[in-house]
Design a binder for these strands. Structure first.
Length: 422
RNA sequence: GUGGGCGUAGCUCAAUGGCAGAGCACUGGACUGUGGCUCCAGUGGUUGCGGGUUCAAUCCCCGUCGCCCACCCCA
């Protein structure tokens, strides 16, 4: 084997690709009902865009970005996530001048230079949505409902919605200070990672899995108690909307997003059927980001779905469903092969998936192939049939067989198979 | 970046310091032009790569590359 795909980067082939297509088609259908329109945005951007939005001290920016100089020496980065490019797009095209809200979705690969593991890759695919221009919590609830409908639409069950508010630029600093104060004099008892987090992202200490740290942080100030009036009201309203829609969720005060731009609402959908990387979708508000990118103050909210993780879950549900040919044409001899070629084109024009026999082979091996590729109907053309202007047909699922004049093929097809493939 | 596990046929995996195997898949035959089931045969390997120990290494040792899982972090 001369070449392999790069570490953490994988090919997606049939039959897996059919699961991906299913996810994408359901997503499009759901997004349309909620008025989210597709945008196509680049996979490379100026490096600054990600540093400014995600945060200079985050792991993503510090060590996970594919960054390189282009031929003119500009620093280019392959997008590690989609929100920052979407916001850049929104501001660049002055979309804030259009009626508010503007709601978009996009899909495609993201890139992070990480050590791969279950559910984590260096090139991974997301479907992302962003809604600009609404500060009311109703859109938070709507976006979460849309995500729920999407996941249900593709048949995904047994997922948990987790919800939190991390406050706004007014109340988050207060909370952070309260947290720092709480950890200050017992910091040396925490694990090395938490001691590092104390400086980089103290909210993350709340999420540490080390048992000693879990014990030590009991009694730490809760974010809910430090939200300002507006943020508390926003969160309460969101929660009551979700209750109204009978969407079940778990309040998780430790749900901290790693990206700097998040404000207020954060949420995550997790599954227990995955490995350590169990979030299948996640998102939140980023009310400051548009302004930071040079646009007018514009609230916004979005989420991203991890395609590989969803596909992993769906693989179990969607085990053997994949498209297969409807008709196989088996022929014996050059003349028959040419006639079969003509019939194949005719049937394809009528919308059927037709597989011919390309190379000469025994009828036995041709029918074996027809069976193995999952064809429903075999058409057999040999010397005898050519002379008589007829073909043999065989229903491979039922085992029934018969003979029909070539001009009457259509009747056999409608008796034996569906008129077209999905 | 850190830690652990694993690399043998297309796939899933055996094996022993002494001829490298099975199942599945693929091709053909039993059945001159009729699939699935059965039976038979065939194709397919520098045992990831490099070095070392040894009369002899797929096996033991060292290095290296790759994959997997976990930590960190995140979709």
């Amino acid at each position: 084997m001369a070449y392999n795909a790069l570490k953490g980067i994988q090919d997606i082939l049939p039959p897996d690709i059919h699961i991906w297509q299913k996810i994408e088609s359901v997503a499009r259908e759901v997004f349309q009902r909620y008025g989210f329109q597709e945008i196509r945005i680049p996979i490379i951007e100026s490096t600054d865009i990600f540093i400014r939005s995600i945060g200079e001290t985050t792991d993503i920016v510090e060590k996970e970005m594919y960054t390189f100089p282009d031929k003119a020496g500009r620093s280019i980065t392959m997008r590690p996530e989609g929100t920052a490019p979407a916001v850049r797009c929104y501001v660049e095209h002055h979309l804030y001048n259009l009626p508010s809200p503007q709601k978009f979705f996009y899909s495609g690969p993201m890139f992070r230079y990480e050590r791969p593991q279950k559910g984590r890759f260096r090139q991974f695919y997301q479907i992302g949505v962003e809604a600009f221009g609404v500060s009311q919590p109703s859109i938070d609830a709507e976006v979460i409902a849309m995500l729920k409908n999407l996941l249900e639409g593709i048949g995904l069950k047994e997922v948990n919605f987790e919800l939190n508010s991390i406050g706004c630029e007014k109340c988050r600093p207060d909370y952070k200070n309260a947290l720092l104060k709480f950890f200050e004099n017992r910091l040396s008892d925490f694990c090395p990672d938490c001691q590092r987090r104390y400086n980089t992202n103290p909210l993350r200490i709340l999420d540490c899995k080390v048992e000693r740290c879990i014990e030590l942080r009991k009694g730490a100030p809760a974010v809910a108690e430090h939200l300002c009036g507006n943020c508390r009201e926003h969160f309460n309203e969101l929660v009551s909307r979700l209750d109204l829609m009978k969407i079940s969720y778990t309040l998780n005060p430790n749900l901290v997003r790693g990206l700097d731009y998040y404000t207020r609402t954060t949420f995550e959908v997790t599954s227990e059927h995955l490995g350590a990387q169990k979030a299948v979708a996640a998102g939140g508000r980023y009310d400051r980001l548009v302004e930071e990118f040079g646009g007018p103050s514009t609230p916004a909210i979005g989420f991203a779905i991890g395609m590989e993780r969803i596909a992993t879950l769906l693989k179990e549900i969607w085990s053997d469903e994949h498209p297969s040919p409807k008709i196989f044409i088996a022929t014996l001899g050059k003349e028959a092969e040419i006639e079969g070629f003509r019939i194949a084109e005719d049937l394809r024009a009528k919308g059927f998936w037709v597989e011919p026999n390309y190379a000469g082979a025994s009828l036995k091996s041709q029918l074996r192939k027809a069976d193995r590729i999952g064809a429903e109907l075999a058409l057999i053309i040999g010397e005898n049939e050519l002379k008589a202007g007829k073909i043999q047909w065989k229903n491979l699922k039922k085992g029934e067989q018969g003979e029909v004049e070539i001009k009457d093929i259509q009747a056999i097809l409608t008796d034996n198979i569906q008129p077209s493939n999905p």
